[in-house]
């Protein structure tokens, strides 16, 4: 097990290094630089700025400096905001993380419930209803869901009742967090419920469930003790990648609900060629996602002994 863990950690570190290198060199290939704007600036002013941020040196040299600084925990200073990238991430990521986690937990709980109901009541209106929700969730992007929720529950409900139940923007009260979390979770909820449905159907037709039925166990007990516990495994498998999708996809929802998360920095840094911010946010997201996958990988090892054994054989 220890060897398996070490190996996974090794691969993860390698992935992050490759990511850092690729991001760094690719962003320098883009036309333009951080100091190009609509207004032309003087050559000497520009040279001074390039020197200040070390951009006058060859790219490979900049890369070495950058990597050396990373190990000191220094991601550089944003050329656009003049603030350390680590500070920007430390301030904005908690919002994105909380939003993402709320969405993920809601999606997982609701997705699993809908999936079970659809499978157990297969062929009934329950099934059709849940799968209709899933179909809509998969096809309608989060920004549409967000905009609709905001308009009907934020604006219209306010105009009808005169009471502000759901604020349009902000991230302070519980009510202000509901709509964005739901908007972000909807797509994931839908795909998880479809997955849970098919996985539950598989388990329902397995021998041990039949045995349990034959033993005369009540349906509730069969589903909770035997079906759900086995059927939920594929959900655990996709939670890592889903966490990734939710976190990096939060940008649009953050924009619609005016949440000061990291998404805006991640996306806007590219068009402003804010090299340090591009590299810093990409690396941070990358490291976070690699970590999420590592945790899931390690969980497999705990859950399924065959994976550990396979690791040992090599």
């Amino acid at each position: 097990m220890a060897r398996y863990v070490l190996k996974r950690i090794g691969y993860s570190l390698l992935t992050i290094l490759v990511l850092a290198a690729l991001t760094f060199f690719m962003m320098h290939l883009l036309p333009g630089d951080p100091f190009v704007g609509t207004k032309a600036i003087d050559e000497s002013t520009k040279a001074m700025l390039m020197a200040k941020y070390g951009l006058d040196k060859p790219v490979w040299q900049q890369f070495l400096t950058y990597m050396a600084n990373i190990f000191k925990g220094d991601l550089g200073v944003s050329t656009q905001y003049k603030r350390p990238v680590t500070t920007i991430i430390a301030e904005s990521f908690p919002y994105s993380f909380e939003l993402g986690m709320r969405a993920l937990i809601f999606a997982a709980v609701m997705g699993v419930l809908l999936g079970i109901v659809a499978a157990v009541k297969r062929g009934t209106a329950w099934d059709t209803g849940s799968m209709l929700v899933a179909m809509i969730g998969v096809s309608v992007p989060s920004f549409i869901v967000g905009a609709l929720l905001q308009y009907f529950l934020g604006v219209k409900l306010f105009q009808w009742t005169g009471q502000r139940i759901f604020p349009i923007t902000g991230w302070d009260t519980e009510m202000s967090k509901l709509l964005p979390s739901f908007a972000l979770s909807f797509g994931t909820l839908a795909s998880l419920s479809r997955l849970m449905r098919s996985s539950t159907l598989d388990v329902l037709s397995s021998d041990y469930v039949k045995t349990a039925k034959a033993k005369g166990l009540s349906q509730g007990k069969i589903i909770w003790r035997h079906v759900v516990r086995n059927a939920i495994m594929p959900i655990v498998t996709v939670l890592g990648p889903q966490a990734a999708a939710i976190l990096t996809g939060a940008f649009v929802v953050e924009k619609i609900f005016g949440i000061p998360g990291m998404g805006r920095f991640f996306v806007n840094s590219i068009s402003s060629r804010d090299y340090t911010l591009i590299a810093g946010t990409t690396l941070f997201y990358g490291a976070f996602l690699v970590l999420a996958n590592l945790v899931v990988d390690l969980l497999y090892g705990v859950i399924d002994p065959r994976i550990r054994l396979a690791g040992r054989k090599e």
């Binding site: 604006v155 306010f158 105009q159 502000r164 349009i168 923007t169 924009k255 609900f257």
Partner: peptide, 14 residues
């Protein structure tokens, strides 16, 4: 700092 114009309008209306 609301950069989405529809969000800003919704906020104004409420």
């Amino acid at each position: 700092m609301i950069d989405d114009t529809n969000t800003a309008l919704n906020g104004f209306m409420t």
